[in-house]
Amino acid sequence: MKRTYKVAGHKFAVVMPDHNLAWNEMSSCEPFVCEDADECLFTAELLDAMPDTSGKQKVTVGCEGPDMPRVELFEWNGEWLMELAPTLEAPVRAYLITDKAFSKGRFRLLGSMRFSLSTVLMLMFAFATARKNTLLMHASVTMKDGKGYVFLGKSGTGKSTHSQLWINNIGGCSLLNDDNPVIRVMDDGEVRVFGSPWSGKTPCYHNVDVPVGAIVNLHQAKKNAIRRLSLVEAYAAMYVSFSGYRFIKDMADGLHATNEKIVSTVPCYGLDCLPNAEAAWLCYKTVSQ
């Protein structure tokens, strides 16, 4: 069975046998089902057996912290092979083999399917769209008055907490996505933020998009303060908030071009904050002007 999904305007297809249990783990993708299967950016197909990858050559390993997913990248048979695990030390839970254009992925799932299937699709999406004015972000996004406010920060800084503070204190706010929203520069230059099937621990899978009102980089501090970021500061704050393999030149070029357009278009701020209502009000009043 093949089903097509559309996230941030990019279509992709998932191919798995009809009665495979992995379909039960696709609920976060449901809001993104698309009837029209033409012009998919990529296809991800479940393998019924793993090929012999013994000639694989290790390229790099990525893991942003002990409790963050680990992705080991290999070159194998002229393609990329990724081995995925939910944490730094955990055993491999999924294999993803893809052509170098990231248009045709094949994957194998082991153990808990939810983590592995979701991660496989997220990686394929991030890499396939990296050259298409699109960034899969690590951020929390709250909507207010038809605009999306994108909160950045290192893991544990309080991005989700800050979103909740807006929602609980400022009327008319709602959460668009709590972990992996997608920002896209549209053909007319408008910068929009989209919900996605990936939202970390918060089940929040909205097929909704709005223009980006502002991007706010959060830092924990002893008192609340906000300021506008320079172009370079904004670029740097964004740079660490999306992923991609920058040693792949055309991917790095694509990510750079998109980031540059975003930070040149959208107002970006740095917020020193406590986890309190005053921080949310200070932020909201400044960035919604």
């Binding site: 390229v59 790099t60 172009l231 370079v232 670029y235 740097a236 740079y239 660490v240 920058r246 040693f247 030149k249 790095a252 750079h256 540059e260 040149s264």
Partner: peptide, 26 residues
């Protein structure tokens, strides 16, 4: 790799040989 950014430039670590993958110098 040198990347132009507005009127300035940033030198970013893009190769696997650089230890600090997020290093950036304006």
């Amino acid at each position: 790799r040198m990347r132009p950014l507005g009127k300035e430039y940033i030198l970013v670590a893009e190769g696997l040989e650089v230890e600090n993958a997020n290093q950036m110098i304006s």
